[in-house]
């Protein structure tokens, strides 16, 4: 059985994530689209900062700790075939370029009152359903 602290850790991690998405204005599709049109390169700083810091922890933690502090083992991102990953990435990129909304900001934006992102959220859910049901 997982403890309350375990669930609080997950909630807290998500909270930092949502705070970061908000401060960096990634919950505003306009800012994402301005990067994609080469008007403001800030998105690269967000992605670079987040990935750089995460890389340090992902690479070091399993060497320093035998197990995570509140669980039995470190997970890994599941391996997928290259072809499927790249086809999915291509399709994802086209959709992202149309709306300027990623799966994370579609959720986080709601907390900041950016309610039209609900349309993107439900559309993403629909896309995920169609993928799982007929193209899995």
């Amino acid at each position: 059985m997982k403890t309350a602290i375990y669930w609080l850790a997950i909630l807290g991690s998500g909270t930092l994530f949502g705070l970061g998405l908000s401060i960096s204005s990634m919950i505003q599709p306009e800012v994402v689209l301005s990067f994609l049109r080469f008007e403001d390169f800030g998105l690269l700083l967000v992605l670079g900062g987040a990935t750089g810091l995460t890389m340090i922890f992902y690479q070091m933690a399993p060497h320093i700790l035998k197990t995570p502090l509140l669980a039995e083992q470190f997970g890994q991102k599941p391996l997928e075939t290259m072809k499927r990953t790249l086809l999915g990435a291509l399709i994802f990129g086209i959709g992202w370029g149309i709306c300027g909304v990623c799966p994370g900001p579609a959720i986080a934006g709601l907390g900041a009152g950016n309610w039209p992102l609900l349309i993107a959220l439900f559309s993403m859910l629909a896309g995920a359903y169609v993928q799982g049901r007929w193209w899995s």
């Binding site: 375990y6 850790a9 997950i10 807290g12 991690s13 998500g14 909270t15 930092l16 994530f17 949502g18 705070l19 970061g20 998405l21 908000s22 401060i23 960096s24 204005s25 990634m26 800030g42 998105l43 700083l45 967000v46 992605l47 670079g48 900062g49 987040a50 990935t51 750089g52 810091l53 995460t54 340090i56 922890f57 992902y58 933690a61 700790l65 197990t67 995570p68 502090l69 509140l70 669980a71 039995e72 083992q73 470190f74 997970g75 890994q76 991102k77």
Partner: peptide, 24 residues
């Protein structure tokens, strides 16, 4: 604000991994 926000996102993902081992 981009750098601060990016680091906070990274901190959230890192904390999730160090505490629970989950890939977020």
């Amino acid at each position: 604000h981009y750098i601060t926000g990016g680091l906070l996102i990274g901190l959230g993902v890192s904390l999730l991994f160090v505490l629970t081992g989950l890939v977020g």
